[in-house]
Simulated scan of single mutants.
Amino acid sequence: MTTAREIMTAGAECVGAQESVLDAARKMTELGVGALPICGTDNRLKGVLTDRDIVVKVLGKGKDPAGCTAGELAQGEAVTIGADDDADEILRTMSSHKVRRLPVIDGHDLVGMVALADVARALPDPKVGDLLEVLSSD
């Protein structure tokens, strides 16, 4: 069975919890990504910051992206997947938490990210279709 390690994009870069949302947006632009894991000063994963978070929770509410931190947008414990978890677990986790991107961890170390596009490339169409249906519903 296909594992997260096999389909993930390796080498995910973090945005520090104390970095500004503006700096995070610049990093997303430089890397060409729509999400960044948020890491604390202890190098532990605190959450994931998405481009949508920036638009809805910062810009849409009239906040200054230079004045708020990535860590302020981290919501509770981050939803993750283990590097050796199989594709069915990836599908279950994305579906149950309604997320399109999952940080991949090996022990406590962040080793990559699995995005919906990675899943679509790696798995059979019916399974991907089912996941898309769940993620698209309210």
Rank of each mutant, 00 (worst) to 15 (best):
residue 8 M to W: 09
residue 28 M to L: 04
residue 38 I to Q: 05
residue 133 E to V: 13
residue 52 R to C: 04
residue 78 A to T: 12
residue 107 G to W: 14
residue 59 L to C: 09
residue 3 T to I: 10
residue 3 T to S: 15
residue 64 D to V: 10
residue 32 G to I: 07
residue 99 V to C: 09
residue 55 V to W: 03
residue 8 M to L: 11
residue 56 V to E: 10
residue 86 D to H: 15
residue 39 C to M: 09
residue 128 V to D: 01
residue 65 P to S: 07
residue 85 D to R: 08
residue 46 K to Q: 15
residue 109 D to R: 15
residue 128 V to R: 00
residue 113 M to H: 03
residue 85 D to C: 10
residue 83 A to E: 13
residue 6 E to C: 05
residue 66 A to I: 04
residue 37 P to H: 03
residue 88 D to V: 04
residue 132 L to D: 00
residue 43 N to A: 15
residue 124 P to S: 09
residue 69 T to D: 05
residue 82 G to T: 06
residue 128 V to S: 01
residue 115 A to I: 06
residue 26 R to D: 07
residue 112 G to T: 11
residue 20 S to F: 11
residue 58 V to T: 08
residue 19 E to M: 04
residue 103 P to N: 13
residue 104 V to W: 04
residue 59 L to S: 02
residue 125 D to C: 01
residue 62 G to M: 13
residue 59 L to Y: 03
residue 8 M to D: 08
residue 107 G to V: 15
residue 76 G to E: 02
residue 52 R to D: 13
residue 62 G to P: 05
residue 86 D to G: 15
residue 136 S to I: 01
residue 34 G to I: 14
residue 58 V to L: 08
residue 15 V to R: 01
residue 79 V to W: 08
residue 86 D to I: 05
residue 71 G to I: 11
residue 25 A to H: 00
residue 21 V to R: 02
residue 24 A to S: 10
residue 60 G to C: 05
residue 132 L to S: 01
